[in-house]
Amino acid sequence: MTNIPLDYETMRLIWWLLLGVLLIGFAIMDGFDLGIGTLLPFAAKTDEERRMLVNLIGPTWEGNQVWLILGGGAIFAAWPALYAVSFSGFYLAMIAILLALILRPVGFKFRSKVENTAWRSTWDWALFIGGFVPALIFGVAVGNVLLGVPFRFDNAMRIYYDGNFFGLLTPFALLCGLVSLTMLVAHGATVIVARVPGVVGERARSFGKIAALLSVVLFALAGVWLAFGINGYVVTSVQDVAGPSNPMLKTVTTGSGVWLENYTKHSWMLIAPVLGFAGMALSFIALHCRKGTLAFLCSSAGIFGIISTAGVSLFPFLLPSSVMPNASLTVWDASSSHLTLFIMLIATVIFLPLILLYTSWVYSVMRGPITKDSVDNTPNAY
């Protein structure tokens, strides 16, 4: 341990930040795929128009989804207790997301195999489900984290989850799901406006403006609800930030408005919600002015801000427990060992830049407008 250049506290904090980076990276990179899938039956009316949108995301969705795999892998390796509770407690929700995501590659591959209107329309709606369901459920999951999840430990530190799938669908969690959905629909619309000219881009622009405006309103409503209608969690004992990973070595209480305490203690954290509001609002303005690329950058900033708001509001909690608050998982008591975090950090420093470089190269190759002619003239088009 003494040969590790970074202390345990710093390593845990770095991995909390890296987890946020991976989740935000997924929301930005694969989020527009989900948004475009949700818009597919509405922004594109004819088979030719829908083929353009399918070919807009078809060549790159797999690479974008790597961010989700990286996020899941980071949770598994860096925060094993968080992985155990969340992936078991949210099991049915995760299955719903995975089944919806499976519809995407199947839809891309089979949609154009048969020249039949009913066949293609069925796969178009399958692609809609593949975008709509994950975009909604990811937000519902964040809402449940803010509410607290009904898990507990027994005397042998075995984890028990006392909830069920329908218990996740509370009004506040569904509101968070709508924030996620509108945010990603607006994000997807910016890509369509930037790369698909003509009537499809105009329809997407109209839907994107509505979604961006709704995301601002719903985000504000969620913030007010969180401040005055949701009990937050606070550690009331002294936590050893470099101590062993044992969640039961602390005491936790709940109270109204507690999730706002980080903003009063550290005013710089207000950057997160301000960026969330400003990014989505500026995305609305850019869409109104038909500036697709600028709108994409603004919506990316808005996504960064909205997800960061959830993260900094929760800190240091990773997953609060609603039935046994003392068992809540925090950054300081739910991580892997010091050595494990260090080895993973080295791997991340090596491979994350390679992923970013490869992603940049792919998008530079795939740049340019998507039109009927470009789809017809591409041998491997979907």
Rank of each mutant, 00 (worst) to 15 (best):
I57D: 00
F76I: 03
A78D: 04
T60W: 14
G72Q: 04
P59N: 05
V66A: 15
A84M: 12
G73H: 06
L82W: 09
P80C: 08
G71H: 11
P80A: 10
A81P: 03
A81C: 07
E49D: 09
G73Q: 08
A81F: 13
G73K: 04
E49S: 07
R51E: 15
N55W: 04
G71R: 12
A84W: 08
N55T: 06
A78N: 05
L82R: 00
A77T: 14
I75S: 12
E49A: 07
L68W: 11
R50W: 05
W61I: 00
F76T: 03
Q65Y: 14
P59C: 04
G63P: 05
G58M: 03
G72L: 07
W67H: 03
V54D: 04
E62F: 09
E49F: 06
Q65D: 12
T60N: 14
Y83I: 11
N55C: 06
A77N: 10
V66R: 08
N64S: 08
G58V: 02
G58F: 00
N55H: 05
W67A: 06
E49W: 04
L70F: 13
W67Q: 05
E49R: 07
G73V: 06
Q65C: 03
I57T: 12
G58K: 01
L53G: 02
R51I: 10
W67Y: 06
V54I: 14
G72C: 09
L68H: 11
E49I: 07
Y83L: 11
R50E: 10
W61N: 00
V66K: 08
L82M: 13
W67C: 04
L56W: 05
N64K: 01
I75C: 12
W79A: 01
M52K: 14
A84I: 09
A78H: 04
